[in-house]
């Protein structure tokens, strides 16, 4: 079988198991999506605050901003470290290692199929919010949408590869997830989930620009809303962090596999 045909066969196998898995746990997925309401909560506070205060955005712009954040978050959520940790701790990683495919591939495909299962819910929330705040409705330009989709894909790829590298720490420690928790803490405050970076003090903005966090959420959101943004810089920064994450993953993966004791198998 040619490599391309083999690849397609694996893709089909993982995608169909993914679809089966996520359609079985529809209720669970619904709840996971509902857990992503934080941008909508922040939207309420910012809408009200910007009605009277002096902020760079007006209530309508804040509403659009947080709706875009909600969509970007739904499309870029990564949970691989919890899955991977469970596989290492219970020893069920062993059968995955016997398959003629890197386990990372399976996880990527599952994340992507999960997005499909999530989409109807995310769109329903978007529709409800637009009904509640009709002033926020607008048609984004086609070019902006294309750029935003690329930005979201780059953000997802980078978040995934970094979290996967953290997951490799699970070969040595039972609490690799606490790494992700600390990372997520910084992510929440610097990525633009709680507020657009426009309202941040300049010092914080400058510091944040040197971290990958603003490019995970704020950057694709800016692209989608068609607001001024250094497009090239955003993609370059994401690419650099992706490369760093990938290198870390390769090193830890090789060492980790040797260390892996297949507990309980």
């Amino acid at each position: 079988m040619s490599p391309a045909a083999a690849f397609l066969r694996k893709l089909r196998a993982f995608a169909s198991t993914g679809v089966a898995l996520f359609s079985e746990y529809r209720a669970e997925l619904f709840l996971w999506s509902l857990a992503g309401v934080i941008p909508l909560i922040m939207m309420g506070v910012w809408r009200q605050a910007s009605a009277t205060g002096a902020f760079p955005l007006d209530p309508t712009e804040f509403t659009r901003y947080f709706l875009a954040v909600f969509l970007v978050r739904q499309a870029t959520i990564v949970w691989v470290i919890w899955d991977f940790e469970a596989h290492v701790v219970s020893g069920t990683l062993s059968p995955l290692l016997l398959q003629p495919s890197n386990p990372a591939f399976r996880f990527v495909v599952w994340h992507l199929t999960e997005r499909l299962a999530r989409a109807p819910f995310a769109l329903a929330v978007l529709a409800i919010w637009l009904l509640l705040f009709p002033d926020a409705f607008f048609w984004p330009k086609l070019g902006d949408v294309c750029l935003a989709v690329l930005g979201i894909a780059a953000s997802f790829a980078t978040r995934f590869v970094i979290q996967y590298a953290f997951a490799m720490v699970g070969f040595w420690s039972e609490r690799a997830t606490s790494l992700e928790e600390v990372w997520f803490l910084v992510y929440v405050f610097l990525s633009g989930v709680i507020a657009p970076l426009d309202v941040y003090p300049d010092v914080v903005r400058t510091i944040a620009a040197f971290t990958p966090f603003p490019y995970f959420v704020y950057f694709p959101v800016q692209l989608l809303l068609g607001r001024e943004e250094n497009v090239l810089r955003g993609f370059v920064v994401l690419a650099v962090w992706w490369g760093l994450g990938y290198a870390l993953y390769r090193v830890l993966w090789r060492k980790g596999l040797r260390h892996y004791s297949a507990m309980g198998a």
Binding site: V45, A49, T52, G53, L185, V188, F189, A195, V199, Y200
Partner: peptide, 20 residues
């Protein structure tokens, strides 16, 4: 870390000169 971030996040509103 979470608390520092939360205080910072709250402060963002007061930079706009409003009473939240």
């Amino acid at each position: 870390g979470g608390l520092v971030g939360a205080v910072f996040g709250l402060h963002l509103f007061y930079r706009g000169g409003i009473l939240l």
